[in-house]
């Protein structure tokens, strides 16, 4: 049998994939560049690899949820990302969905947890 941690890693990876998208959208009502997002999310307890975040930003831009602009005024040119109009709308809907998921999930987990406790 596989190690429990192995399963956990795989499942966590799947679970995180969606939440990272929401986290990214949540931070982009103001234009920001990629590495600022990495540090900002890290501070808030969400760990994202730059190697995951940068391709994700690009994909979201391609899907039309984000807009981007190069800022060449500063010493180092950086690409800034910002929610598009569609992105804002999608983000609003996503929060509502997310809250529902959290609610339903806590219901589900509570029942199961209770049963397991009983079995012990």
């Amino acid at each position: 049998m596989k190690d429990a941690n192995e399963y956990l890693d795989k499942l966590l990876q799947e679970l995180r994939r969606g939440t990272i998208t929401i986290s990214v959208l949540s931070q982009l009502s103001e234009p920001q560049y990629g590495y600022w997002l990495v540090t900002m999310l890290e501070e808030k307890g969400i760990h994202v690899e730059p190697g995951t975040l940068y391709p994700l930003l690009r994909r979201l831009e391609k899907q039309g949820l984000l807009e981007s602009k190069w800022d060449t005024e500063e010493a180092r040119p950086r690409k800034y990302y910002l929610l598009s109009e569609t992105g804002k709308e999608v983000y609003k809907l996503l929060i509502v969905e997310w809250q529902q998921i959290v609610e339903s999930m806590s219901n589900v987990i509570d029942i199961k947890g209770g049963k397991m406790d009983g079995d012990d």
């Binding site: 590495y35 940068y54 180092r76 690409k79």
Partner: peptide, 17 residues
């Protein structure tokens, strides 16, 4: 080209930190 430039600025940011 765009990805190359973005990666370069990322690497420089990471180095700076």
């Amino acid at each position: 080209e765009d990805i190359a430039e973005e990666l370069r600025s990322l690497i420089e940011d990471m180095l700076e930190e």
